[in-house]
Structure formats: C-alpha cells, structure tokens
Design a binder for these strands. Structure first.
Lengths: 199, 199
DNA sequence: CCCATTTCTTAACTTAGATCAATAAAATCA
DNA sequence: TGATTTTATTGATCTAAGTTAAGAAATGGG
C-alpha cells in the first residue's frame, strides 16, 4: 500500500528530530516507504527470516520475542511513532531469531534493506541519519544492558515503571515478566511485596 | 604524545575493514590521534567525567566497571587492536558512570569528541565509518543483551568461553564472575559442577 | 449477557545463587 | 627466597526466583 500524506507527516516529524533536510532529500526517503497492515496477534516477521525492513510504527504496538527451548522470551516492546527493526539481522543479512508480533491491529511503514543502502549512497544526509539512529538505539540498548547487569528483578521492575510507563498501560503483565527475565508468578509476588512494603 | 608510524598502521588496518579511503582522508583522521600511556591499575577515565574520547587500544587491555552500592560491577573487557569508548556519555555529553581501567601497562590512541565531530562534517567517508562502527558495536551489545536475558549464569559462562576465549587468557576469574553478574564463589561452583559432569 | 479463554494471583515445595566465614593456592615484590 | 597480598575454593546457611498446581479475576466474542 501507498502511505497517506498524514502517515508521512509523522515520519517527517520523527526524522527532523535527528537531521535537517530539504524537500528533495525528504521525498527521496519517503518514496521508499511502503505501508503494511499487521492484524492483532500476527507477526510482521518470524524467526528464520532475514529482516528486510526498518519499520515505522504508524499505528499500534509490537512485541519482539524469541523462542528458546520451546518457550517465548520477550525481548522488547515497540510503540507508535517509533522505528524498529532487528538490527543484527538487517545489517548482517543473517536469519533473525526474532518474531515481531502486533499486540493490537497495527500499521507500519517499511523501508527495505536495498532502499536503505541506495539512499545512503545517494544522499549524505541519510548516511548521517543512519549514524545518529544507530547511536540513538545503541544508547537505549546499552541502558537496558546495564539495568540487567546491575539491578535485581524487583529493581528492574521499578526502573521500567519510571523509564517506560507506556509499557504498563498497554502490555499484559506476563509479557512484562518475560521482558524482565522472570516468571509471571514471580512478578506477581514482587508486586505484592512492593504493595505491602508501601503500607 | 605523537603516535609512531607503526601505531598508526594498526589503526589503518582496523579502519580499512569498514571503509575505503584515500591518503588525504586517512591522514585527516590519523592526525587527530594522540597517544597516551595508561599504567597498570590506573583509569583512563573515571565515573563522573564526560567521556571525551574514542580510544584505540594500541597495547594492553582494559576493564570497564561501574560502582553500584560501593561495589564494583564489571561491565566489559576491551583488548588490543580495538576501539572503545563510553558511547552513551561520549554521544550525549553526559557524565559517565564508568571507569576504564588498564589491567596491564597499556597504551591508547585517542580521538576527542570535537575532532570526531569536525571530521564527520569535513569528510562523508568518516560519517559512513561512524555509522558502520555504531552499527557494529550495536550488534555486539545486542548479542550480550540476548545472552543475559536468555541464558542462566552457567550457560552464559559456556557461551563466553566460546565467543570470547581471549577473556579467559587474560582476565582474573573474579572479574569474569562480575561480568556474568554473579559472585566469585558462584562462578567457582559452576566451574566445579561443569568439570564434574564432564567426567 | 453469558460462556470460553486469557490473564493474574496464591500456595507449597524445590533449587540456584547470595552471603558469611575460613582456608588454600597463586602472584607479587622487597 | 620468604612474606604479603591477591585470587580461588569450599562449606554452611539463607533467600529469591523457579516449578507445579489450583483457583480467581478480567477480557472478549457470539
């Protein structure tokens, strides 16, 4: 599908937080975008595939998970108005281990790997955008990394509430438990412990 | 100190794994580099400072750690022939939480934040290098992230032996324990358990 | 609105790692 | 070399999360 003008306006707003551009440059980028619907519960990508897109979430939100010993482990959540991809797979062209599942009826605007590389070659401004986005995401991943190494599950839970309150508005609790690396029962107990110690 | 020709040759070799460049471009980059000695046990940077360098390790190896409740938690190890920095601090210009400690007498070639930004503006090839390096590091951090979420300490230990054997050649065991997020006593028990189950 | 399904909570028991303490082994250096 | 410090191991006990199982609460579709 072809994205609407409003759709592209949201992308423009996002990009302009990172780089300045003229109309020609912007249009060259926006023209590469294709719109896809992702019904609730379905996956935009499944493990084993090579991730061939950077996706801007136009509507809805997603869960990234892997299956380890027949068990789903939630790796991340992505919300409306943000880009996401499986960076390692997208960059290395190796099969992904991830599933990108829509948690509600969603829409994304995708840019293919080929389009991305082409536009890097054509216009230096997008090369810069690519660097800044990679750096931006790197910082977020590094923060997560620290949280996992430095905090116990209870502290991680409190930290997540502070740093990403949106997660608690939209995501079922057992997925949050999985994201924290614990069982749903344990999260339930942590919540009980915290609510009792508050009294 | 001014780096020697041999020193810069090592840097050139590293960079050429990522981008192609001519002599003018290369020299513009290499001229920004300053050489520093870092005696064993001392820190190139301490928590609270803004990380103002990307460092190429010319000789020796380093440990990155943070202090959480008066306790050192080892975050990473960096070896000869690689670049390292505290990316979040370097990029955001916020104070770092990290210490970069030389584990043996070491030497680094550093590029300052200012030099880096200047050279990004001057030559698109370095913008591309910046993107590729950020992407490369992002992939490594994402892998670490997955390991921490998907593997228990024993599995992480085995994974680390496979993926970074160099760590076991050069790094004391209690630092490795800290890197795995466990106490030295626990690592000792894991090793015992593994050696017994092998018999 | 009701029924089926999903999600969350609670309880009893197990287990891996933390903690505290002591000692052994290895490395460092005068 | 011998003494001191650093690093690694082992044991006993404690604790938080895992596991299994059951039931309660919330959600969603017909």
């Amino acid at each position: 599908m072809i994205p609407s003008t409003e759709d592209l306006e949201k992308v423009k707003e996002y990009i302009s937080r990172f780089v300045s551009f003229n109309d020609e440059q912007l249009n060259a980028f926006l023209q590469t975008m294709e719109k896809k619907r992702v019904p609730k519960g379905t996956c935009l990508m499944e493990a084993g595939q090579i991730c061939d897109y950077v996706a801007f979430i136009n509507k809805g939100h997603f869960r990234t998970f892997c299956i380890i010993n027949h068990e789903e482990v939630t790796y991340n959540f992505s919300f409306e108005g943000n880009f996401y991809t499986d960076y390692p797979s997208f960059l290395t062209r190796q099969p992904s281990m991830e599933y990108h599942q829509a948690l509600v009826d969603s829409e994304v605007l995708v840019v293919s790997y080929e389009s991305m590389q082409r536009i890097y070659r054509q216009m230096p401004v997008w090369e810069k955008f690519g660097r800044l986005i990679a750096e931006f995401i790197l910082i977020r991943i590094a923060e997560r990394n620290r949280a996992m190494l430095f905090l116990n599950p209870e502290e991680q839970y409190l930290n997540l509430m502070k740093s990403r309150p949106k997660v608690f508005e939209k995501i079922p609790q057992h997925y949050i438990a999985s994201y924290l690396g614990i069982q749903p029962e344990s999260l339930s107990r942590i919540r009980k412990r915290l609510s009792e110690s508050k009294k």
